[in-house]
Amino acid sequence: MDNSKKTLELHPFFEGMDPDLLDVMACCACHREYQPGQFIYREGDEADQALLIIEGKVCVEIFAAQRGSLVIQTLGPGDILGWSWLFPPFKRRFDARAIELTRAIALDGGVLRQKADEDHRLGYELLKRFSRLVVERLQATRLQIIDIYGKHI
């Protein structure tokens, strides 16, 4: 568990977080490892975890019948994978697959929600960090969809 706390501390997502809150987080953390090509989760799965990527590369995909899997985004060390555990219906919306050997810390979504409800200080910290992440992803996605390198930009 100490090891998990240390890893959490070093992860950019939790930068500057109070140590006592990190302790709580560490309680629901565990290490994960994924082989290249291995699905971390699939669309429709129960969304019960947030993954802090420590090492490797993960792609977020959507499956289209004729086109196969389309990669929407790739994530690497320092990134967070998955936020569907935050809100109902707690289902994965996309596929996530490791494309390199990937190590991550998984945080239990259900426990986190419960702890956040009990301790609003923790809840606020978590939501602050996750909403920032969501905003950053949304901004990047907006740039991604305007076909910036196309003929009409």
């Binding site: 985004q73 690497g76 060390p77 320092g78 990047a140 390198y149």
Partner: peptide, 23 residues
């Protein structure tokens, strides 16, 4: 190298070039 969209099998990055910056 990063691209805006890719099909399965692309082992590079997907996302706008700014998403590489934090790393």
């Amino acid at each position: 190298v990063t691209v805006d969209s890719a099909r399965e099998g692309w082992r590079g990055n997907v996302g706008v070039v700014t998403t590489l910056m934090p790393r």
